[in-house]
């Protein structure tokens, strides 16, 4: 039961994008269509599970002082594997994700889970935690990608839905649309959390990223909040 909890918490209760506000860059950048969103989500999930498992296995070997560089190296290795795989078998996804495929390395979700969970827990819970967070990330990206593609191009996964009936709003697939849809989704998540008696998201951006523990820029920001 508790193992299932490790998996399920990432999907809604601790959704990495809407509740923890991590990994905002890829969330905004690749959700121009449902297909790209799914590709990004799956790539990040594979890296998350792989790095969580390896970091959990090595958690007693890695010295505390160099843990962040060690984590980054492990994550970068998995990203390179995924990158080579996507390049070889899914070239269209590779072109669509472009620079954001190698940038999975610096995705806060992955480093955050390594630091917060995998470095303190055994292998099986860590793998499930990674899988849950990955599924949560993928679902949110897919939701955002579908909304933006539907309004911006009138299609979902390339299939015409409202195209031909309603003039699509191009702006939704461009940069401002990304910020806007993300803002509205976070507002909805806050509203739902409020109804269920939970707190809305407090921190914005890097305040949640545990890579910057003890960073005074973040502390001063929280004091001002």
């Amino acid at each position: 039961m508790s193992l299932f909890k490790e998996f399920s918490k990432g999907i809604i209760r601790e959704n990495p994008v809407l509740r923890l506000v991590l990994g905002t860059c890829p969330t905004l950048a690749v959700t121009t269509s449902a297909k790209n969103a799914l590709g990004m989500g799956l790539a990040a999930t594979v890296v998350l599970i792989g790095s969580n498992v390896v970091i959990s296995l090595l958690r007693k070997v890695i010295p505390d002082k160099v843990r962040i560089p060690a984590f980054i190296t492990i994550i970068a290795a998995f990203v390179t594997i995924v990158q080579m795989f996507v390049k070889a078998f899914l070239p269209s996804i590779n072109d669509a994700l472009g620079i954001f495929l190698p940038l999975i390395v610096v995705n806060c979700i992955i480093l955050g889970r390594a630091e917060m969970f995998a470095s303190k827990n055994p292998v099986l819970p860590s793998a499930l935690d990674g899988a849950g967070m990955g599924v949560g990330f993928t679902c949110t990206l897919l939701l955002m990608g579908s909304i933006r593609e539907l309004i911006g191009a009138g299609t979902i996964f390339g299939f015409a839905v409202t195209a031909g009936h309603i003039e699509p709003m191009m702006i939704m697939t461009m940069a401002p649309g990304g910020f806007f849809v993300f803002g509205v989704l976070v507002a909805l998540a806050n509203k739902l959390a409020d109804k269920m008696g939970k707190k809305p998201v407090e921190h914005t951006g890097c305040g949640n990223c545990h890579a910057c523990d003890g960073c005074s820029a973040c502390e001063s920001k929280e004091e001002n909040a």
Binding site: V21, T24, C25, L28, A29, C108, T204, G205, C206, G207
Partner: peptide
């Protein structure tokens, strides 16, 4: 959409 974290934080 690069550097959104510090941009918001």
């Amino acid at each position: 959409f690069m550097g959104i974290c510090p941009f918001l934080g």
